[in-house]
Design a binder for these strands. Structure first.
Length: 491
RNA sequence: GGUACCUUAGCCGAGUGGUUAGGCGCCGGUCUGCAAAACCGUCUACAGCAGUUCGAAUCUGCUAGGUACCUCCA
């Protein structure tokens, strides 16, 4: 069936049909993490959002190259008076090599992404590995006349650029208002205008992350790496650039300016921005210190968490909101997501228990098509999920004997779940290690439950309840089914 | 201060100019010795005011509240 994916382009502020530059191929670049701390829930949002896009483009048959960078140099920190960058600062505190810090947090980031079932990108370039390319890129901007050298640093000449091009087209700003609203920053006196941004920054003597360049020993500016690595791996023009909304200005605005200055044309055709995760209505972020790390979710070790949450609950929670909406976190909302996800999984499991009928009376027709329509409409994962829940209802109703489903339609349902729940939404069934383990331990539990069954047989309710209550206290969940008692370890 | 965006039932969250989003929770029911689990049913909202319209929660204006960006930030 013909599918036309529609995506929202921040540049036009409209939903647009996705038309790739090269037929059958798609190039996407997403701003990855700065690896100087553990990933938190906010980091999971773009990772999962663009994982969905990556998966869906592939599902639609595109050959996709997905580049997600690792920022391990260059982000200036305001509270460091000499422009020391974040990686170096953390390293000093911990008495570690900067690259040791990078590797440590990168490993942890990868681990968390894997648990969230976020596919690794095609290429994961490090900024520190592309210093030469960044220097070359700066030279191009200098040659084009849109940058100037000052005290060993190189700055982008925004004022000059804006005479010919629109600086602010992505974020909806104009230069006059920037003049009045840009705050005082370090190194201001070196710049012609306060809104000029650094392409290359001279390192102060104590700055340990530094590279030689024609201008000084120093490090590349804030926004350069994405322009450079994006074009290096995806070409001077490529299809999609994604990232968090908070990066729109100045980061992505500067990227546009850099690429236009360096190559005379824009690089990106579709800009996509995911919205923020909020906590008590406020953005969850490093600067506010109100973040909860992914590991804290997985282990339940944070005062705001009532319990631990599985990676799939986190993933499901994020997918229940559209990526362009803010998503407000609360422990209560996560518990709801956990229950909902269990219901979805249970529904799928119930599908296998249905005895096929000759014909289908349950309302399940068009499910697959509706799911495609939702995905094509700017990746409306909440709608896909709601359609899957509609199917769950029909499955459960059928299982209770009210309606029927034919063998053919059961197959169709299974395929649809497989495509959307697993392949596209990237959800996985939680592995049931809670019911397996040591053989002797399993048999002992079965024996205890058998004793309870016998107690029930002679209507010795006090003994039966004692066993059940004690097992529940210990942490087991006991289910009495028609086939006998089942147990599983809950926590 | 500038710019942009948001305000949906107890909670989280979709969507739309006229028809039930979905989930959680609550309540009721089925099942059960009683429970739990599971399943079924119910609960019907769109910040306020004015306007456009046959009809607006959906469009327009104003008001109130909130958020984001303007500084590193996903």
């Amino acid at each position: 069936m013909e599918q036309q994916l529609i995506i929202y382009n921040t540049l036009s502020r409209k939903k647009e049909p996705f038309k790739p530059i090269n037929e059958g191929k798609a190039g996407m670049y997403v701003c990855g993490p700065t690896v100087y701390g553990d990933g938190h829930l906010g980091h999971a949002r773009p990772a999962i959002t663009f994982d969905i896009l990556f998966r869906y483009l592939q599902h639609l048959g595109y050959k996709v190259r997905y580049v997600r960078n690792i920022t391990d140099v260059g982000h200036l920190e305001h509270d460091a008076d000499d422009g020391e960058d974040k990686i170096a600062k953390k390293a000093r505190i911990d008495s570690l090599e900067p690259m040791e810090v990078v590797q440590y947090y990168l490993n942890r980031y990868h681990k968390a992404m894997e648990r969230l079932n976020v596919l690794p990108p095609s290429i994961e370039p490090h900024a520190s590995g592309h210093i030469i390319e960044q220097i070359e890129y700066i030279k191009k901007i200098l040659d084009a006349g849109y940058a100037y050298i000052s005290e060993g640093s190189v700055y982008f000449d925004v004022e000059k650029y804006s005479r010919k091009y629109h600086y602010g087209k992505l974020s909806g700003r104009n230069i006059d208002e920037l003049l009045n609203t840009t705050r005082e920053l370090d190194g201001q006196q070196e710049k012609r205008n306060s809104f000029d941004f650094a392409l290359w920054k001279k390192a102060s003597p104590e700055h340990i992350m530094r590279w030689p360049s024609p201008w000084s020993d120093g490090f590349p500016g804030w926004h350069l790496e994405c322009s450079v690595m994006g074009t290096k791996y995806l070409g001077e023009e490529f299809d999609i650039h994604g990232g968090g909304m908070d990066l729109m200005f100045p980061h992505h605005e500067c990227e546009i300016a850099q690429s236009v200055a360096a190559q005379g044309k824009e690089t990106v055709h579709y800009w996509m921005h995911n919205n923020m995760v909020t906590i008590n209505g406020q953005k969850m972020g490093k600067s506010l210190g109100n973040f909860i790390t992914l590991d804290q979710f997985f282990t339940g070790t944070h005062p705001l968490l009532s319990q631990s949450f599985t990676p799939m609950t986190i993933r499901f929670f994020i997918l229940q909101a559209h990526y362009r909406s803010t998503l407000d976190f609360s422990s209560e909302a996560l518990v709801a997501a956990e229950k909902a996800y269990q219901r979805l999984c249970q529904g799928l499991e119930n599908l296998s228990k249905i005895t096929p009928s000759d014909k289908t009376t349950a309302e399940i027709s068009g499910l697959r098509q509706r799911c495609y329509e939702a995905m094509n409409d700017d990746l409306s994962t909440p709608i896909v999920i709601s359609h899957l829940f509609d199917a769950v209802k029909q499955i459960n109703t059928t299982l209770s004997g009210t309606t029927t489903i034919s063998a053919e339609d059961i197959k169709e349902l299974k395929e649809t779940f497989s495509i959307f729940m697993f392949n596209i939404l990237g959800l996985t069934l939680e592995n049931e290690s809670t019911t397996t383990g040591n053989k002797a331990y399993e048999e002992a539990l079965d024996l205890v439950l058998q004793l309870r069954q016998e107690a029930k047989g002679r209507k010795d309710w006090s003994t039966a309840d004692l066993i059940r209550n004690r097992l529940t206290e210990i942490g087991f969940e006991i289910k009495d089914t028609k086939e006998g008692a089942e147990w599983k370890l809950v926590k």
